[in-house]
Design a protein around this nucleic acid. Sequence first.
DNA 1: GTGGTCTAGACCACT
DNA 2: GTGGTCTAGACCACA
Lengths: 127, 127, 127, 127
Amino acid sequence: MFELDLKSRTPISGQIVDNIKELIVSGVLHAEEKLPSVRELAAQLTVNPNTVQKAYSTLEQQGYIYISQGRGTFVADKENITATPAEITDAEARLRESISKLYYIGMSRGDAEILLRKLMDERSDWK
Amino acid sequence: MFELDLKSRTPISGQIVDNIKELIVSGVLHAEEKLPSVRELAAQLTVNPNTVQKAYSTLEQQGYIYISQGRGTFVADKENITATPAEITDAEARLRESISKLYYIGMSRGDAEILLRKLMDERSDWK
Amino acid sequence: MFELDLKSRTPISGQIVDNIKELIVSGVLHAEEKLPSVRELAAQLTVNPNTVQKAYSTLEQQGYIYISQGRGTFVADKENITATPAEITDAEARLRESISKLYYIGMSRGDAEILLRKLMDERSDWK
Amino acid sequence: MFELDLKSRTPISGQIVDNIKELIVSGVLHAEEKLPSVRELAAQLTVNPNTVQKAYSTLEQQGYIYISQGRGTFVADKENITATPAEITDAEARLRESISKLYYIGMSRGDAEILLRKLMDERSDWK
DNA sequence: GTGGTCTAGACCACT
DNA sequence: GTGGTCTAGACCACA
């Protein structure tokens, strides 16, 4: 499905969450599609099942997927995705910090704008 | 000098680092200016001196400040600020993640552009 | 793995850093190899875990090792080793001082050259 | 007489010691010549008199100068300079470390040899 | 007074 | 189990 970067400082469970969000939002995984089981995905990624479990819990809590006991885990309708005000504030705060880093390391405003545009363009379907 | 957010999950020492970087890069603190001593700042912020110590070490090692044994800690010339390749890559990666979050929570590309512009404009002297 | 010289005035954490750098650069530890955990190495060396922690942080930040949260600490690829300009200047300055010492204590230039050659030859694989 | 680098990590008293050794060994200061008083030199260098005091003590202890109570401080005969075995061992150890740093930061052996030769050539009168 | 190091012991997030 | 952060308190070298 996707690959992990074990050398990254972002936690593995967080990487799994992000990757699955990516697949859902970009339409690769569509509503009602069955996700691999915890054990299966853990085996594929060669990580601890607890880690996948945690990622699935987070995704369920945020409305990206739903878990049907005994049947498996499925992609939810996109309408169920909840972006709580707290999450939005948080996203903005993270962004502010990231942009500050660019400023700190001495990048010019022009270069920063180019970089930001490049990163947004990576999602060609973003409208 | 500044205040800490004890509720934040970014570590206290990291907040100290960020705040001082901010003050230096934005020009509030100028080169050769003496910073408060480790104990002094620790008292002001009501944190443990070791925590401030750690922050100062990080700042020194990144070239923002320099330390003169027994005399104190001083703001370095901006030219000394070092951004290792790893840091630059890391900054870009964080930024990519932050922008992805906007996409995930359903923000339109137009709104994202407006937000980014707003965040950059917060640093009116960025050129 | 190695031993510490508690009598030395170079700090313990610094000795740990140097020893591990030595093992990595000389090839005894190879890329992706797992290092002992903080607590484990602390126990082996009978020092406080915080001391080892500090050493590991330094090594990570200089690119010798990388840390995977919850999994452990691993040797990085040698390409990741970063030497900031400041470090290089510093290394040269230290060397200049060391050589001056030889001059001060009255060693002849010839003897100094022999000594330097001997020290470089200690690293038979240096090319 | 000479200048200090307050930004350096090497202690100020050590810098004074090194600079005066330099002047003596290179012949700028000759035997029996009077050195500036502690207060005088401290004023010139704008440092704490205690710092100069400490430097003078070190120099006296190593035989570079002698202090005549009430008369002042004078350059000693070069024959009095003592290089204790401990000092020689220490100098060699420092040198070994400095050379290791070059190795760690990835400098080639050839470049290291060129650098060392350059540093020795800085003392054109070394024979 | 300054910064620097170390120990002891606690708590946390991640796997 | 892994690393990461913080506090408390001690000791040291330097100015």
